[in-house]
Simulated scan of single mutants.
Amino acid sequence: MHFFSADRTATGAAVRSIRPAPCSRSVVESLRAHAGTRVPFSVEFNPPRDAAGEARLWRAVRQFERMHPAFVSMTYGAGGSTKDRTARITRQLAQQTTLLPVAHLTAVGHGLAELRALVGSYADCGIRNILVLRGDPPGDPLGEWRKHPDGVTYAEELVRIVRDLGDFNVGVASFPEGHHRSPDLATDTAFLAAKLRAGADYSITQMFFDIEHYLRLRDRVAAHDPIEGAKPIIPELMPITSLRTVQRAVELSGRAVPAPVLDRLRKAAGDGPEENREAVRAAGIEIATEMAQRLIAEGAPCLHFITLNFAKATSEVLTNLGYEVTAAPLSA
């Protein structure tokens, strides 16, 4: 790792600063650079479970590379279950592609020494952008959250740790409907503002299907803290290709699909023993396109797409929006 001389936090603990590669662009800088005639877009990958899944991921990576997203992120997996694979592939994205990778970092299952070492390993391969999350408990994402004996309790603490380590661009999560552990929206808004004040430069929302929830989130943060409310809040979208998949996704988030959206998907799925995947997929692309159009009209700083390691659905939405998509997606 590359270290500066030790300095100290407000509590007096020694902290070694890590120097990311100077040529690495931050997410905020990339958003500005991509903000021309079109709102920037970004994509999210998931760590694959096996060799076949990894091959599919890299096919999607190369397709998206030709589309020039503002950045790409690699998730951690439930409870940090894929942390080693996540770290390896994120480093490969930095070293072997022209994409701007954002590394996920969660508090689940990590002590402070391991967290600092992981940040250092990212810095060594030029990764400057880190998305800080408290993370979900392993096994049951909606279950009781337990702090690592040598770790941290809140994402706000992790933001401060990363910022104390060096010149990193830090993102955090935001929740248009409020986090399922927050007692109310006011408390949830205060938590987000605290993460931003701690040094986060932007936030990426949890997946949602009601644009009003996103707009009200922006309003709440701006009213709570106008300075922090000016930072980018990036909406996360998922083009639905399967009713079963989206139902599982919302179960893990503790939120429900709005009735009008669910009705459209169920109508497309049909009454047979198996859903009409082609019809559901068409409806899902249409819904994602409509949401993106509204978000663009409302001034969203970027469109962040959950891809499930496929390029085709996202590229179809972008094409519907008038983006020039130069890739030729192979599947899904």
Rank of each mutant, 00 (worst) to 15 (best):
G77P: 11
Q247E: 14
A107N: 07
H34P: 03
R281F: 04
D184G: 02
S17H: 15
H304S: 05
V108T: 10
S242H: 11
I287K: 04
A194H: 02
A193I: 07
I127N: 01
D188I: 08
D225G: 05
G299D: 12
Y76H: 14
A193H: 00
D7E: 12
V61M: 06
L57W: 11
A123Y: 02
D7W: 15
D210K: 07
R181E: 01
R281K: 09
G120E: 14
A283C: 07
P226C: 12
V317L: 03
V162R: 09
T319G: 10
T289V: 11
G166F: 03
L217D: 07
V152P: 00
I285W: 07
K195T: 06
R255N: 09
V108N: 07
T319A: 13
R244Q: 13
T9A: 14
G79I: 00
R62F: 02
G171S: 04
G36Q: 12
A186Q: 11
F41M: 11
F64M: 08
V250Y: 04
G139W: 02
P40R: 11
I285M: 12
L100C: 03
A87V: 10
P232Q: 09
H224N: 13
G36D: 13
I306D: 13
A282L: 04
D210V: 09
R197G: 00
V250Q: 06
M74V: 05
P176F: 12
T86K: 15
T205S: 15
G272R: 01
C23E: 04
A55V: 12
L158D: 13
R244M: 10
F305V: 10
A269D: 09
R220N: 12
V317F: 00
A222Q: 15
F175R: 01
L192N: 03
G270E: 08
A21T: 03
T189I: 06
A282F: 02
A222W: 01
F41P: 04
S182N: 05
A113D: 15
E29L: 11
G36C: 08
A103N: 11
R160C: 09
V43T: 10
A297R: 03
L321H: 10
K147P: 06
E156P: 00
S17A: 15
H2G: 01
